[in-house]
Every structure is written in C-alpha cells, then in structure tokens.
C-alpha cells in the first residue's frame, strides 16, 4: 500500500517536471519567434508546436500533482461546519466522482490517442504537421490523476479523516 502511494507520488513529480520543461520551452519558442521576426525571419511552426505540444503538455501533465495536493479549486466553507465523519463521507464521495471522471477521460482519450497514432494524425497549416504524439499526454495525465485520487482516498480512509 505504502509502495503504491510512493510510486504514484513519483509519477506526479515526473509529470510536473515535464510540464515545467514545457513551460520553459513555450517561453523560449515564442521569444525566439518574436526575435526572428524583428529580423524578417521566422521560426517555422511556432504556432503549431506551441499550441499542440507545449501547451497540451504544460496544462495537463501537472493534473495529478494538483489533485494530490488538493490545489484543485474547491469550496470548503460549508463542509468545515460539519462533524468529522460527515466530512470524511463527502471526501470519499468527491474522490469516487473524481476517480470516475478522470477514469472516463483517461479511457476515452487513450482510445483516441491510439486511433490518432494508427492514422498518423496531422493538422494542415502552411505545411503538414503531425499531432498524434501530443494526444498521448491526455491518457498519461488523466491516468496518473486517477492514481493520485486513489492514493488520497486510501490515505483518508486509513487516517479516518478528510484530506
């Protein structure tokens, strides 16, 4: 059980680190294009790479980390007035809903990523641009979030208190 929690925490951190790298890449990529433009040049494919790769990775991969640390925006006021066991009950409910939601997203986006890979999905811009690898960020992020939710749930039940 402890091993599972530690594994899922490790996954969160790795994904977060990749997202941070994507943020840096996004900053540099856009800046490079702006500088190139001042010299009547361009970094070809900035819009496509930034939107479909850097953005998707930076926005979605930290999800498991955010879920684990309860940085997903939620409303505490009402629940804090309730007795501990009721709080725990609602927390378990929230975890179950979260698990089902992210599970459904992981499952469907996994199927989509697979299909996209098989047909080598592209978008048309001023050239042909492959986007299928970016699709895999979704099942990865949502799947890891399921693990994080499960780990939180086990911890809450073990400690008999809402997290």
């Amino acid at each position: 059980m402890n091993g599972f929690v530690r594994f899922s925490m490790w996954v969160d951190r790795v994904l977060l680190a990749v997202a941070c790298i994507a943020l840096v890449a996004m900053t540099l990529h856009i800046t490079a294009d702006v500088i190139a433009r001042a010299f009547h040049q361009q970094v070809v494919g900035t819009l496509e790479t930034v939107s479909y790769y850097h953005m998707v990775v930076a926005v979605l991969l930290p999800l498991a980390f955010v879920e684990r640390n309860h940085e997903n925006i939620r409303v505490d006021v009402l629940v804090q007035l309730l007795p501990g066991p009721v709080q725990l009950g609602f927390y378990v409910l929230a975890c179950v809903i979260g698990f089902a939601f992210f599970g459904a997203l992981a499952w469907q986006s996994g199927l989509d990523a697979y299909k996209s890979t098989v047909r080598a999905e592209t978008i048309m811009s001023n050239f042909l641009f492959y986007i299928w690898p970016a699709r895999w960020a979704l099942p990865l992020a949502f799947g890891a979030t399921c693990l994080a939710t499960l780990a939180n749930l086990m911890k809450a039940v073990g400690e008999r208190r809402a997290l």
Binding site: H40, Q41, Q42, L47, E48, M124, S125, N126, F127, L128
Partner: peptide, 19 residues
C-alpha cells in the same frame, strides 16, 4: 494552405500561420 504559402515563399514573402 500549403500551396499558397509555397507561392508566397517563392516571391519572397513570409507565409505565417495565425488564428
């Protein structure tokens, strides 16, 4: 589109993609 952008490039313009 790719054909237009090839032509723009050929005449010395810079084709860019902007939403």
């Amino acid at each position: 589109g790719s054909t237009v952008s090839e032509w723009v490039e050929e005449v010395g313009g810079i084709p860019v993609n902007v939403p």
